[in-house]
């Protein structure tokens, strides 16, 4: 057994985490992409995506989670989400005003419909997911520093 296996929780928790964490991430992405035809949307999907990484961090310790998504990458994703949302809003000026739905609406009840709403959902999910993951990482690191002092 390598050194990584000694950190984190017990073997049972780690095995279950390995089996379920991918499904949780996939479910979050599904919620985001189907936000305009079914319940869900960018907020709920973003929080589920953040929860999948937090699940990984709680079970395996922070090194394994940071290898998948480091703190710098999380802040880059958060800024990317904010800028993407603003760019989508500003592109509306091409047709007239802020937040104009400039892409064609498409056929209702399909996945590729509703113009800019799915794109906005993706931007918001990136922002919410990365932002909440950054908050959680910051709180966890503060706690670990406090413990190491004692």
């Amino acid at each position: 057994m390598s050194k990584e296996h000694e950190k984190g929780m017990s073997l049972i928790v780690k095995t279950i985490t390995r089996l379920t964490v991918g499904l949780i991430l996939l479910y979050g992405i599904y919620i985001v992409f189907h936000g305009h035809v079914s319940p869900g949307g960018g907020f709920a999907g973003g929080v589920i995506i953040a929860l999948s990484f937090i699940h990984l961090m709680l079970a395996y310790g922070r090194e394994v989670a940071f290898r998948k998504l480091s703190k710098a990458t999380a802040s880059v994703f958060e800024n990317l989400g904010a800028i993407l949302f603003l760019i989508i809003a500003l592109l509306g000026f091409a047709g007239g005003y802020f937040f104009l739905n400039f892409i064609s609406k498409g056929e209702p009840f399909r996945l590729f419909s509703a113009g800019i709403i799915p794109l906005c959902n993706i931007a918001i999910s990136l922002k919410v997911g990365a932002g909440l993951f950054a908050i959680f990482v910051a709180l966890v690191l503060l706690r670990l520093d406090g413990e190491s002092k004692k």
Partner: peptide
């Protein structure tokens, strides 16, 4: 007007998108 069958999504991202912009600012 929006083509989205979920009315809540069309309200938060099309009719009242400024609310969502403010929410993004607060989260940041």
């Amino acid at each position: 007007k929006t083509g989205a069958s979920n009315i809540v999504a069309s309200v938060i991202l099309d009719f009242r998108a400024y609310d969502t912009l403010g929410e993004a600012t607060i989260l940041f």
